[in-house]
Amino acid sequence: MKIYVCIKHVPDSAVQITLMAKNQIDESVTFLMNPYDEHAVEEAVRLKERIADCEVVAVTLGKEGALSTLQSALAMGADRGVFIKTDDPPDAILTAKLLATAISQDGLPDIIFTGKESIDSQGMQTAFRIGAALDIPVAVNVAALSLDWDSNQVSNQNRVLAECEKSGGDRDVIEMHLPCVIGAGKSLNLPRYPTLPQIMKARKKKIKQIDPDSLGIEKPLASMEILKLQVTTYKRKNRILEGSPEQAVSRLIKCLHEEEKVF
């Protein structure tokens, strides 16, 4: 079985974001693996631990620094890496085409994992675009996954059951034929922390570096371009309501009712 996991190198969720140019953030902050992608890697590695003859390949697209996120996936248990290196990361339309092409040039995927979204651009679409590029089914926000794998079957006879989280915690149980794309949600599993020996061992694992131009993809007609970024500020009134609990609450209700008119 062959599993690909697409991962993204993103700024740590705890850092302050400042701007370098009108459409460019200052990237001299801590970057790490997109949190949802950790769940994707974890699920792939768990399948590998259960299934004989299974290879997990981590794939990323990004600048030089993205190599460290690829190393993290290898330390978690991925077998090898594919690194599409670019100094100018493209929009989601082109990114998905590059990922899909790099994967299909590398091997025949049975499952492609991604995170359900990335916490930087929050485009929420790459998994679907990879699926469309390869003409395979997609499920995202997957909270539970079960796989009936019979290596003697041709791939598309094998199926997965994916539970996808919807509103109010409802879950759609979806059956898909392999190959398919799974967008990992947070409830899927608890990602492991690699041990030091695993981190050391990961450094010896192979990483294939690819120049995006070598993938031979024509520039798509459709595009999404960031014209401008603004750092958001929300001015709050910051009125601390004094008095006894009864008084404070009654002042709060007066403010919400008469000034803010929320009810």
Partner: peptide
């Protein structure tokens, strides 16, 4: 065809120009 959306978990708002047929 310019959309405003939050990025970086709401720390920034981006103006995104979309081009295409749809």
């Amino acid at each position: 065809n310019i959309a405003q959306k939050p990025q970086y978990s709401g720390k920034t708002v981006a103006d995104i120009k979309v081009r295409g047929t749809y």
